[in-house]
Amino acid sequence: MTVTEFVDGPLWYFALAVFFLGIAWRLVVILANGWRGDLSRPRRSGLTGSVRALFSRFAPAPGIGRRIGLHLTGGYLFHLGLFALLLFAAPHVAFYAERLSLPAWQPMPHWAFVLVSELAFIGLMLLWLNRVLNPVTRLISSTGDHLSSILTFLVMLSGCLALEQAHEPLRVLHFFLVEVLMIYFPFSSLMHAFTFVLSREALGYRYGRRGVPV
């Protein structure tokens, strides 16, 4: 079996399995802790609070925005860029159609791809530089956090290097890194892409009951 065959075949299925089973396992274990109920008389509906919190936290809290301009810029550029690339880059759309048998949808034009990746790169670099240069994040970050950022960076970089789509090894390298990321994902802080829902819900419910606008 050649490297290409391995990356395209067994490793891909392994990565898929680890990714989905890992995520499911992690979420199940979190939820299995159960909820300590709250017997106090609610002022308002906790449910409304949790729905609100799910969305309100996408915007900075009042008065905090001006202190976290860098986080906001970096965070939004990176995440929006990442999702746009993930969903609408032409090679990705083709991949989903071919390998996952999804119906193909309209990909973004090449110029948009380039623009979006530029923005995503700036965003990720700002976030990671902040992580290493800001005394606060330097104190609280773990090796795993750095690995998450670096791995994501490498995946994006290898994807862009393969942009000419003329060289098989570059595609395989990109795909390999994606698989590494998928295997790493459920074990790492990248899981925040799922856990943020639970966390915001819990907060929103708690303060929603108290009638505090979350």
Partner: peptide, 19 residues
Amino acid sequence: DAGVASHLEACVHCGICAE
């Protein structure tokens, strides 16, 4: 409980809370 676990799991170590 699940709430606390979610909070601990969801933290991305962004440091915004410090601000």
